[in-house]
Design a binder for these strands. Sequence first.
DNA 1: GTACTTGCAAAAGTTTTGCAAATTG
DNA 2: CAATTTGCAAAACTTTTGCAAGTAC
Lengths: 144, 144
Amino acid sequence: MVLIIVLWPEMANTAKYSKQRELILNILRSSKSHPTADEVYEQARLQIPKISLGTVYRNLNFLAAEGRIQRLGFDSGIAQFDGDLRDHYHIRCTRCGRIEDVPHGTHRVTYDEVESLTGYKIHHLHLAFFGLCRECKQKREEEP
Amino acid sequence: MVLIIVLWPEMANTAKYSKQRELILNILRSSKSHPTADEVYEQARLQIPKISLGTVYRNLNFLAAEGRIQRLGFDSGIAQFDGDLRDHYHIRCTRCGRIEDVPHGTHRVTYDEVESLTGYKIHHLHLAFFGLCRECKQKREEEP
DNA sequence: GTACTTGCAAAAGTTTTGCAAATTG
DNA sequence: CAATTTGCAAAACTTTTGCAAGTAC
C-alpha cells in the first residue's frame, strides 16, 4: 500500500485510486519483457481474476497519457508497454521478436539540433536497434 | 515499365512480377506521409479499382520482408510504411499525429558499441523523436 | 453524494487466411 | 505447365466504447 502514497499524488488530480490500476503499473514496472496489452491482461488475471481486458486497455492508455509508462511501437502494429522510465533504448531480434534493453550512455542523442531543424518542441525520443540476437545468429548458421 | 527491370532482379528469386506489387511500391516511394495499410489501399484503388485490401497487406508484408520498404511502429498500434530507404529518422507530433522526416546527419549512431554490448548482429535502427509540431505548439498557447 | 472506475459485452478497427480463378515465367 | 499472385469473403486478432453497478474520496 506504500505505492499508493508514492504514486497517486503524481497522477492527474482528477484520478482516483484503484487496485486494478496499481496492479497494472506494478506489472509493468517489474517486467523486463515489454508486454502487449494482452500479456498484461494475462498477468493481471493471476491476481485479479475478474479484471477485464477493457480495464487493462483503459489503464494502459491512462498511464501512458500520464507519462507513467511508455507505449512502444517497433514494427509490429501491436502496441507494447514499458514501465521503465529511465533513459534507455531497445533492441529487437527480427527473427524471434525478442526485445531487450540497451542502456543509455552508449549514445548521447540531443534535442537541440533537431528542434531547430524541425521547429518541434521535443519531449522524448525512442531509439530502437534491429538485428539478430545471439541465439538466432547461431540458428541461422546451423540451418541456412 | 522501367521499374520492372530495375526492381525485380532484386526481389526474392521465387517472386513474380505483378502490377499490384509495382503500384504499391511506387505509392510508398513517392509518398512522404508514412501511410498506413489502409491509406495505401485507398491510394492504390485510384489506379486499380478492384485491388483488394488483402493484396495490399500481402504485398506490404512481402516488400518489408525483402527490405524494399520499412515498416514503422511509433506508438499507435497501427503499422505505417515508408518507402524511403535512405538513412533518416522520424519526428512525430504527439498532439496531431503528424510524422515528418529528420535528415540523417544530425546524429551519427554507430552499431559497434551496441553490438558488443548486446551480442546482437544489428542491421538497422529506428530513431524517432516525439514532441509538439509548430502548429500544435501555437494552438496549445491559444487554448490552454 | 459526486465523480471516477470497473466488468461485461458489443462494436469498431486492423490484419491474416482459405480458396478458386487469373497471371507470370 | 508449374508456381505465384490476385480478389473475395470470412475469420482472427487488437482496441475502443456504452452502460449499469461498484468504489474512492
